[in-house]
Design a protein around this nucleic acid. Structure first.
Lengths: 198, 198
DNA sequence: GTCTATAGCGCGATAGAC
DNA sequence: GTCTATCGCGCTATAGAC
């Protein structure tokens, strides 16, 4: 899907998008460090220097490629609407929907890079906390003293799911139907959010 | 930084062990790709060429450094002994004990490297399946048709725990008491092993 | 046994020609 | 706007001197 620009664009209008798509894929596949501008440029059919021309540097390219296209502010209301006991299941369901979709590559890129790169790790932590965990815990009016731990536990299950399904590609998890994983992990997340964890 | 002495290191008691220790730490901290033999050699106070002399190559050094010193065959009996409903908790407890101990660095190295390196990912998958999941599922006599999924789910929770506690260092999880995490994640693992996941 | 030196590679980045 | 050419770097690995 490419947004067409109105008005005359110098050169090929799609070049920028092609670079971004190639970058997203490369970062998702190999992580920030291992992905190379040269390989991205080749995949996009352009010259490496052009990438610098458009984006300035590798970090800026990464940020542009992973700028989260799925605005959690738009998705969370659907998770939070409805009964309190169903938040866990709905959170896992939306999580899988996003990550299974094409934009999920940005998430994979972020996760894969966060493992061996400090500043992308911070990016991921902040995204998780401020965009996902905090709003959910707020909405459920969880005891503030328990929020860090409960949020962290939710993060372990979601991150583990993402790791096995998208990064390490553990067969049984990677090939499972979303509904199967929702049924399995939904109650876990629900318990971490509102259940008895002592 | 210049602890360097000219001439031959006399009677260095165990240069090999020093290199292995430095390697384990470097691989745990930065992953296979990002860790460099040069840095490892410097940390161990030896010349990079000496590392090659002892171990032959980077891959062999990695294998030597992560050769799992905690034999699961020795630890699993304690997990499996006892009531069937306590396997989840005991598995999480032993898991944390091993990873919190010095030898846990090998696990962190393996996990961190598996993310951006195909053959270390395979190493990790095989270790998980053959050394941990399969014996546990066998012992519990889980329906063979369900073993891949149930094993995969257990893997998501354990891997997520390891990611948050040791790799991404999500505060609430990294600083939590082992007992807290056992109480929280134990029942999850137990349910994935023997509970209702439909 | 240990170190110096270097080959050979891929990388990010940039200058400047068209 | 796009590309060629190149700089400077860090890496693994090896050859060979002490």
């Amino acid at each position: 899907m490419s947004a067409r620009r109105t008005g005359r664009r110098p050169g090929s209008p799609d070049t920028r998008e092609a670079i971004l798509a190639a970058a997203r894929e490369a970062f998702a596949e190999r992580g920030f460090d291992a992905a190379s501008i040269r390989a991205i440029a080749t995949a996009a059919g352009v010259d490496p220097a052009l990438v610098h021309h458009y984006f300035g540097g590798k970090e800026e390219l990464f940020r542009a490629a992973t700028a989260f296209p799925a605005d959690p502010g738009r998705l969370l209301p659907a998770v939070l609407a409805g009964d309190r006991d169903g938040v866990g299941e709905r959170l896992v369901r939306v999580f899988l929907e996003v990550w299974d979709s094409p934009v999920g590559a940005a998430g994979v890129a972020l996760l894969r890079s966060a493992v061996s790169n400090d500043w992308t790790a911070r990016l991921l932590r902040e995204f998780l906390v401020t965009q996902v965990l905090r709003p959910v815990l707020d909405h459920l009016a969880v005891d503030p003293a328990q929020r860090p731990l409960r949020g962290g536990l939710v993060a372990t299950q979601l991150a583990g799911l993402a790791m096995m399904r998208y990064v390490l590609r553990f067969d049984a998890v990677a090939d499972a139907e979303p509904a199967t994983l929702v049924a399995a992990a939904g109650p876990t997340v629900q318990r971490y959010l509102t259940g008895d964890i002592t």
